[in-house]
């Protein structure tokens, strides 16, 4: 139930019992991670030591038509979200 509640952040839960049992199976499987032994001092793998940052140069943006092309609802160049339907 706790898991289903948490996931309600994004998802509405209808088939709670089904999901609980599925989740439980996955979590049981994942428990192996919790009990796994880890070495006290694992050799630190060197983090990539280069930066990949880009220059501050403008590239023309996309047309608003293209930006909106996949939207189901739009109005005057804005994305539109109806409050209820």
């Amino acid at each position: 139930m706790k898991i289903a509640n948490l996931a309600k952040l994004e998802i509405k839960e209808e088939e709670v019992p089904f999901y609980i049992s599925e989740m439980q199976a996955m979590i049981d499987f994942a428990e192996a991670v919790c009990t796994a032994q880890t070495a006290e001092s694992a050799d630190k793998v060197k983090a990539l030591d280069f930066n990949d940052m880009r220059e501050d140069e403008v590239i023309t943006s996309f047309d608003s038509d293209e930006i909106l092309v996949n939207a189901k609802d739009y109005e005057d160049g804005f994305f539109k979200l109806r409050r209820r339907a």
């Binding site: 403008v58 590239i59 943006s61 996309f62 047309d63 608003s64 909106l68 005057d76 804005f78 994305f79």
Partner: peptide
């Protein structure tokens, strides 16, 4: 690399 500005028409300074 979209331009960082103020006051453009909606959704004209966007990219994927």
């Amino acid at each position: 690399s979209c331009s960082n500005g103020f006051g453009s028409a909606p959704n004209t300074k966007c990219c994927p």
